[in-house]
């Protein structure tokens, strides 16, 4: 009887011990194995804004339309920018004409300089001859006059030379004005080209908020373009599960939409989230939440998962914002 009751005790204790071990293993597996139901499909979005302001004259796309890189999205009214180009062209023509005029005035100035040089040579020779005559053949006054005339001719020659240099400087100024006008023309042409807003990437037009007749301001986004090659998934893993996640691990992805199965790899792990307990309250003091001592909520850290686009099931429609379940298969420890 003693032995039988001991056996009964042993059997019971063994079964309970086994239950504790298995229960603990299941608890650990369920709590710490890296999987999450909080996966979100994400995509890179380009916010398309016009580079020049004006009335919208044409909208070439529909909402949710597929576009290729370089496709025309919408057009800003071109009239003002055509005018600007015409104005810049006219300015350039005027600048070129004044450059030519400056070239001609150099020629005129150097011809004038030659003339005054000849004049000066003539007067100088005359004066020299008169200074050499001896014995009062001419009066001292005439001699002085000849000298003065030669000096005046010399001064006139120098003045003409200075005018030549001035004309040269004027030509350089005119050439600089030509360059300036060319740059202005290029800028006006660029503005004209930018009236046509084109798709910078392949993708889907979304949230098209632009109509013919709208006024589009420079830099204000008017539609979103979702890059069709950029879909990825953000899995918000609880921090308790994070230690087993490594970059490069394989990931099974199940979309909530129809349970489509995708595969992927862990691309990167976010290295920061906002501390929810650190908003600043009144008087610059931090606004710390009260806590339950027993219940602690795990923070969730985004893990970026690259979708294996080559093995996408046929007909899978991915939309940014969809929900997915992610199961990470940790690579064997190295």
């Amino acid at each position: 009887m003693k032995l039988a009751s001991l056996a009964r005790l042993v059997v019971t204790v063994l079964v309970v011990l086994l239950a504790v071990l298995i229960g603990h293993a299941l608890w650990k597996h369920y709590m710490y194995s890296p999987w999450t139901r909080d996966g979100r499909v994400r995509a890179e979005v380009v916010r398309i804004a016009p580079d020049v302001a004006g009335l919208v004259s044409e909208v070439k796309v529909l909402d949710n339309q597929v576009v290729k890189k370089g496709d025309l999205l919408f057009v800003i009214d071109r009239a003002r920018y055509l005018n600007a180009v015409a104005q810049a062209e006219a300015n350039l023509a005027a600048a070129e004409a004044s450059a030519r005029a400056a070239g001609a005035s150099i020629n005129a100035a150097s011809a004038g300089a030659n003339q005054t040089k000849v004049n000066y040579d003539n007067y100088a020779a005359q004066s020299e001859r008169r200074q050499k005559l001896i014995n009062n053949v001419i009066s001292a006054e005439d001699r002085a006059n000849a000298q003065a005339a030669a000096n005046a001719a010399h001064a006139a020659w120098q003045q003409a030379q200075a005018s030549t240099r001035q004309a040269g400087a004027g030509q350089q100024q005119a050439l600089a004005a030509v360059t300036q006008a060319q740059v202005e023309l290029a800028a006006a042409q660029l503005n004209l080209d930018r009236t046509e807003v084109r798709a910078p990437v392949d993708g889907y037009v979304t949230n098209l908020d632009i109509r013919v007749g709208d006024y589009a301001s420079t830099g204000t986004p008017r539609l979103a373009l979702i890059d069709s090659h950029s879909y990825w998934i953000y899995g918000y893993f609880e921090e308790t599960k994070l230690p087993t996640v490594r970059v490069g691990d394989k990931v099974d992805i199940r979309l909530l939409a129809g349970g489509a199965r995708l595969t992927g790899t862990v691309e990167s792990i976010a290295r920061g989230i906002t501390d929810a307990d650190n908003p600043t309250g009144a008087d610059l003091l931090s606004d710390v939440n009260p806590t339950f001592n027993w219940v602690r909520l795990a923070q969730r850290v985004p893990v970026r998962v690259k979708i294996d686009a080559d093995h996408l099931p046929a007909g899978t429609v991915l939309a940014a914002g969809m929900t997915a379940t992610l199961i990470v298969h940790p690579a064997p420890a190295r």
Binding site: I22, G23, S33
Partner: peptide, 26 residues
């Protein structure tokens, strides 16, 4: 008849079955 507390063994057996199945299937 061969166990000490039948109800304790029954709940432990349930945990064993549930835990094993859970570990196998997940």
């Amino acid at each position: 008849r061969y166990v000490w507390h039948p109800s304790l063994v029954r709940i432990a057996a349930f945990i064993c079955v549930f835990g094993s199945l859970g570990l196998l299937l997940f």
